[in-house]
Design a protein around this nucleic acid. Structure first.
Lengths: 333, 333
DNA sequence: TGAGTCAATCGAAGCGTTTCGATAGCCGCC
DNA sequence: GGCGGCTATCGAAACGCTTCGATTGACTCA
């Protein structure tokens, strides 16, 4: 492994000059710059990350804290993770992956041993036990999701209340009078997951404002639960013509089961879904509000960077939902 | 941040003694050991990862190289990733996440800047461009998947040929005479992905041995492709009674479409699937050969550790498939 | 012409570990 | 009673970088 002093010798300058060429923190003559860069390339020099971290107390590593639950929609999760890596690389950062199962202790471990400069925490819940820990770490963190009391921590999320209102409006404007929400699994509500609750609130408000008859069902993504849920809705509310599905994992099954029951989308029943549009995989292109994963992640990473550069104004950023029109909502009357 | 010398002072010993207590590389009196450990705990000392890496040339970080393709089944992917983190932590390692889109250069970057001790590479293909790079890195790597020429690199994978034979045997033993394989998307075969080819070979061999009539279809996971594929099979081969599905992403759609066409599983058509058993989510519990993700990862991580400790015998480990019985295979005749 | 300014560079200290050799004390033994 | 062999410990060097202060010229301006 070639070191900075070998580069320095090769270029006929001091090691500090090489360092300054690399960091640009002091002005360097064009000629020297050229010589140093040539040497670097010729020798294939790469700064030693550990040495750099030691001297500068910067690791250029972002810790990504991932939930280790099985009740989360994996594809959505994965999109997050890959987006984070990509976004981080654009800021010359690498990503250290942590799972929540090590708990708060894991966060402390990584923070205290200076393995990362900042934390990105996914799937934050209303009353998340990690929050107090994060707050007292000496490193900034950005939450994906909004806890009840963000106090001092930066948050990024989709504005789920607005998303719900948008879904309801979409159906109301098409003339639907009687709709239902198929939401997250019961356990998600019990856990007090913030996004589910915010969506629910938005849904309730909007249905009231529009004067719709509306129902709500928490629903696990498995076959039986979906079947039961639909059975329930369709028999109890024969007038039902619109469905808002806020449960990516169950969506496929919901559509399959509607079909099995002879309900055509959108002729018999209209559907608006929240989550990534897997349009190509469906029989009918769905009207959806996609989760703006990449935007959220980009913003989250940028907030981290900003916090690391001192301009620290912890803020909560709720992204405006954008509806992506499909063919799953039919006009009524 | 408290440093080793503060601990040393607090415990009334030298810094090196503290280091030896921590590493156990020299014998320390019980009394000293106790005092040092008390100080460590009292001060909340955590060794600085960078300093440690610098002095010992060990980072205790494993680089996980993840594909950044969209044609991969995300849930399977995610299981891998989380398993790696968990397995690594058991060896006191952390995980740095890399995506393949930075290409071979990314591997070099991380290796040369000493950010990780070893590499774990997912989704390795027959003729993977990363292989030559990995081979010339100064750090060990373990591949998940088997390339044509592993030469010098450790590999771990499911024995897909055996898995295919097992699937075929399962159907043959139940008296099926005419079966078909619904395989990976065409692009996967075109790319020369090793696991798909190995499975195919095993399937061909086994159907020949058992004297079955057999067909094979590469199939994308989207609705249209699956529909077309089934339409094809069911009309061309009216005698078809068994299906081997080696395409996790398409499985759900395959089952839904069978149902739509009025074919009942297993009465009309038997199904054996390869991949994680999502039994709870299906109408009929499937007979499957689950991907032994956790075992593979555990072995892969262990191989890395072994390589790092010198006992380096790069080997290819193919795991024996285990069938998990469901109710999706019916007896014929 | 001499003080002041500025750009470019250097040298050395310091970051927090690990590790190597040295040493001090102790024990047992001939 | 001196010597070899342990065990437990220490001190110092080394790891590869960043950064601070100092230095050297060259240039400006009164």
């Amino acid at each position: 492994m070639v070191s900075i002093s070998e580069v320095a010798k090769d270029a006929g300058v001091s090691a500090s000059t090489v360092s300054y060429v690399l960091s640009g923190k002091r002005s360097i003559s064009a000629e020297t710059q050229r010589r140093v860069e040539t040497s670097i390339r010729r020798l294939g020099y790469r700064p030693h990350a550990g040495a750099r971290a030691l001297a500068s107390s910067r690791t250029n590593v972002l810790a990504l804290v991932m939930p280790l639950r099985t009740d989360i929609h994996m594809p959505a999760m994965m999109r997050f993770v890959t987006s984070v890596v990509t976004a981080a690389r654009e800021h010359d950062y690498d990503v250290l992956l942590l799972t929540s199962d090590e708990g708060p202790a894991g966060l402390r471990r990584v923070a205290d041993s200076a393995m990362a400069d900042a934390f990105l925490v996914m799937e934050v819940e209303s009353d998340d036990p990690r929050i107090p820990v994060l707050r007292e770490l000496s490193r900034p963190s950005v939450l994906i999701g909004v806890p009840d009391d963000p106090g001092g921590l930066a948050c990024v999320d989709l504005d789920f209340a607005a998303a719900a209102r948008r879904c309801v409006a979409e159906l109301a404007e098409a003339g639907h009078q009687d709709i239902a929400l198929i939401g997250s699994p019961p356990v998600v509500y019990e856990r007090g997951t913030s996004f589910a609750q915010r969506f629910l609130r938005g849904y309730d408000d909007a249905t009231r404002e529009h004067g719709l008859r509306a129902a709500t069902r928490a629903c696990a993504p498995d076959y039986d639960a979906v079947g039961e849920c639909l059975e329930d809705l369709l028999t109890e509310r024969p007038e039902l013509t619109g469905l808002v599905v806020h449960n990516e994992a169950a969506l496929g099954t919901v559509l399959a089961e509607l079909r099995n029951r002879g309900r055509k989308v959108p002729e018999d029943i209209s559907v608006v879904a929240v989550g990534q549009d897997a349009a190509a995989h469906r029989e009918v292109p769905l009207t959806t509000i996609p989760l703006p994963t990449e935007d959220m992640v980009r913003i989250a990473v940028e907030l981290s960077m900003r916090a690391l550069n001192g301009s620290n104004t912890p803020e909560t950023r709720l992204l405006r939902p954008q509806i992506s029109p499909g063919e799953s909502v039919a006009q009524r009357r």
